[in-house]
């Protein structure tokens, strides 16, 4: 109360009679805070790294020498058997296609459910405005569950194969896309919806004709970005037990020496697929969003 009536204590007030002094004082204090933050950050990084290294099987410096050992062993063996590579690439192509299919199916499924969540959680657009918090929390929780959790449980129930991976990735995708979709739907112009309402259009028609055409480029671009991410996720899930190229990689790795030409073929396929789809989707996204 004293503060409000009489202002802060005189000593704490910046001395405005000498602005240069005041500025330098402020700048110095800011720099000091920045410095303390930096020290804190460096200390956190260093101690974190120390803890991580202590709990690791091998330590950083001795591992650094061996960093090249495994790739060079793999590459030299693959080079010796380079004649096999074209055949191996061809042999693993179906698995790559399966990985891509898993990512595509998960993106389609997750995108559809994400759109449903987004429409339910966007103010002004929701069919039942009272339920928007429920839809939002649902999307938040779906986004928070890592794919591997659902994938491992579904593998236990459904057995291996692509379906657990699709469902697991789609689950996470629905949450992630639901949030992004809802953000872009929030910015949509409501005038078309008003126009449609005046003609007596139903809620479905309002959304389909008034909102979807506006948000479609953005939604498609988000879905494409998600597709890129999902290709990687589907490769990783393959490695922990569902189908696709990740599973082939795991089998080849478990075999160890003697199958390194396979490992190289799989690495190459995966690398090319990721780069190609990144480029394609980057190009498509640019066209969609910027209209170039």
């Amino acid at each position: 109360m004293v503060d409000i009536t009489f202002g802060p204590e005189p000593g704490k007030r910046p001395d405005l009679s000498n602005p240069t002094e005041a500025y330098i004082h402020l700048a110095r204090r800011k720099r000091l805070y920045g410095f303390i933050l930096l020290i804190l950050f460096v200390a956190l990084m260093a101690s974190g790294f120390k803890i991580a290294q202590d709990r690791n099987a091998g330590d950083f410096l001795s591992g650094l020498h061996q960093l090249g050992a495994f790739p060079s062993e793999v590459l030299s063996e693959a080079w010796k058997n380079r004649a096999n590579l074209p055949a191996l690439l061809w042999q693993h192509l179906p698995s790559l296609i399966e990985t891509l299919n898993i990512a595509a199916a998960a993106t389609l499924l997750g995108g559809a459910f994400g759109a449903f969540l987004a429409l339910g959680s966007t103010r002004h657009l929701a069919r039942f405005p009272a339920l928007t918090p429920l839809f939002r929390r649902t999307a938040d929780i779906m986004r928070a569950i890592p794919e591997i959790v659902i994938a491992l449980i579904l593998i236990f129930i459904l057995g291996g194969g692509p379906v657990p991976a699709v469902l697991a990735i789609a689950f996470h995708t629905a949450g992630a896309l639901g949030k992004l979709f809802s953000e872009s739907a929030e910015n949509a112009d409501l005038k078309p919806v008003e126009g449609l309402t005046s003609t007596g259009a139903s809620w479905g028609q309002q959304i389909w004709l008034g909102i979807i055409p506006q948000v479609a480029p953005n939604w498609l671009s988000y879905a494409l970005l998600r597709f890129e991410i999902n290709i990687r996720a589907s490769a990783i899930l393959g490695f922990v037990g569902s189908g696709g190229i990740g599973y082939d990689l795991k089998l080849a790795m478990q075999w160890g020496g003697g199958k390194y030409d396979q490992v190289v073929a799989i690495f190459a396929l995966l690398f090319c697929a990721i780069v190609v789809f990144d480029q394609l989707s980057g190009y498509a996204r640019n066209r969609l969003v910027k209209g170039q």
């Binding site: 709990r55 690495f267 780069v275």
Partner: peptide, 23 residues
């Protein structure tokens, strides 16, 4: 580096540094 993907980096690094959080 982006194209090689986390999975492949993980495998390569696990060979050099062994299992653990630092890897």
């Amino acid at each position: 580096v982006r194209g090689v993907d986390g999975l492949i980096w993980t495998i390569i690094l696990a060979r050099a540094f062994g299992p653990g959080p630092m890897t």
